[in-house]
Amino acid sequence: MKAASDNALQRESKARRHSEAWHHLKWPLIALAVVLLFNFFFTPLFFHLEMKDGRIYGSLIDILNRAAPVMLLSLGMTIVIATGGVDLSVGAVMAIAGSIAALLITKSSYSFLSIVILTVCACAVAGTWNGVLVAYAQVQPIVATLILMVAGRGIAQLLTNGQIITFENPSFAFFGGGTFLALPFPITIVAVTFAILSTLVNRTAAGLFIEAVGDNEKASNYSGINTRLVKLAAYTLGGICAGLAGLIVASDIKAADANNAGLYLELDSILAVVVGGTALTGGRFFLLSSLAGALLIQTITTTILTRAIPVEFTLIVKAVVIIIVCLLQSEEFRKKALQLVRRKS
């Protein structure tokens, strides 16, 4: 009897857990579906897929491939935002990653793998730097990461001596342009990073600590959690994700462009996280929803491109999306909207 009711309880709790994650995944997915449906009717060949040389081609695959850098950034950004912070420097860190990789490829004889590892480590250090400023020097996150946002591009340019370094390196080219399981390799990188991060937050207590710190830092501190270390680690993870994204971009264009690599992508990734339902005030976070948010942004961009609308129009769409999502999250807005509805009825 008791076991049966326990089971029922467990099933119910599991259902609630799923429903919470689903609730936040739902909105970006619905929006995505709407955009896809629009394309289904109005954009010829949007859903067309074809197999060529062991790789699938088509708009959908293209979206996944192009969204990969922002998806990676949004994974790291989700964790940072969950702790109640924000990281403005990820775009600049991407540029640093590209420069370091280019430097190692052209000036050293390291293997492909050690280049990737070294670059990612350097970006982890950059992230840790942000973390030290936020967690230990207690500088507001926007301000703390602004420093690296400004100086980071300078550092990237310093490394490449201000030039766009182009390189030919077949194994490194695979990182951003290769084919794996008939799909562009960046998709695999995103999938693996997502898998690792999900494992980290679900199979260790890291997820609980991150959410606790973001939701109520004081109470977490009084509960014996090392809140500073949690924040530090979050920014380090953000740096690592930015490093991977930077490598993909550099490998894709076979060059390190310190000026333009990752430009404005910090804003796109913040947008993806917010659209994915993770509140900017921190707390509960949803990695999968952030990925859906990033996909939504890319799908809109691609749609606008294929419809020959100036691509700059996406900027306005993004602005409108930010405001709508934020208003929906704003308690004051809901209160005022409710009052208005009541007054009318």
Binding site: T204, A205, L208, F209, K218, A219, S220, I225, G283, R284
Partner: peptide, 27 residues
Amino acid sequence: TEGIIPNLSVRENIILVLQGQRGWLRL
């Protein structure tokens, strides 16, 4: 302000200190 972690579940709120003592690896 010093007690509850408002948006986390009752379960997570209850295990928080114990989990903190165990560290992040031993979930």
